[in-house]
Computed example of a mutant assay.
Amino acid sequence: MGRARLTTRRLVLFALLEAILVGLQVVMAAFPNIEAVSLLIMVYTVVFGGGVAYIIAGFVVLEMLLWGFNTWVISYCYVWAVLAILAWLFRGMESRLGWAILSGAYGLSFGALCALVYLPIGGPAMFVATWVAGIPFDLLHCAGNFAMALLLFQPCRRVLTALWQRMGDQQ
């Protein structure tokens, strides 16, 4: 996050960014596994560093309030953290294609990551069955994430970086 303390401005900004994640997810729900959350989690991580943890936590809570509690909540508690860690590891990457490949690979693996919650419930057979059943959606997720990151990662990063720097100058 650059600076360790969570100021009121940052808290409000992070809350707005959480709301954007939820809003975009609801608006794009008609398109199976085409979503902007992955793109924005990557951008938020690169721009805000550790501050993304606040955004992800708020997003998951808002999702639970909106959709209720089920096994997907457990997976949401770690799948977005996995993406944030990957984005953090590649934060210095400037290649549009590189970000698109990372985002597409994440979309392709999303079903497997989410199916992990079924290992303790139903064992390997339930994990594999759940994962395999979702592969067509993972392919759509991969393609959508790839295209969205290719087109929008750099512009979103520039806008949020400028906003973040401006906020830092005013304190």
Rank of each mutant, 00 (worst) to 15 (best):
I34P: 03
I34W: 13
V37N: 05
S38N: 14
L39Q: 07
L39M: 13
V43M: 04
Y44S: 02
V46N: 01
G50P: 00
V52H: 00
F59S: 01
M64C: 11
M64V: 14
M64Q: 03
W67Y: 15
G68L: 12
F69H: 10
F69N: 07
F69A: 11
W72D: 06
Y76R: 10
C77L: 15
Y78P: 06
V79W: 05
V82Y: 05
A84G: 05
L86C: 14
A87C: 10
A87N: 08
A87I: 04
W88R: 13
W88G: 07
M93C: 13
M93Y: 06
E94Y: 08
R96I: 03
L97W: 15
G98Y: 14
W99K: 07
I101L: 15
S103Y: 09
A105M: 14
Y106P: 03
Y106S: 03
L108A: 13
S109E: 04
A112H: 08
A112G: 15
L113Y: 12
L113V: 06
V117F: 06
Y118P: 00
L119T: 01
P120E: 11
G122C: 09
P124D: 00
F127E: 04
V128Y: 12
V128D: 02
V132F: 09
V132K: 10
A133R: 02
G134D: 08
G134H: 06
G134V: 09
I135M: 14
P136W: 11
D138N: 12
L139F: 14
L139G: 07
H141A: 05
G144R: 11
N145E: 09
M148N: 07
A149C: 14
L150P: 03
L151A: 15
L152P: 03
C156W: 08
C156R: 00
L160A: 04
L160I: 02
T161C: 02
T161W: 11
L163F: 07
Q165M: 11
R166Y: 12
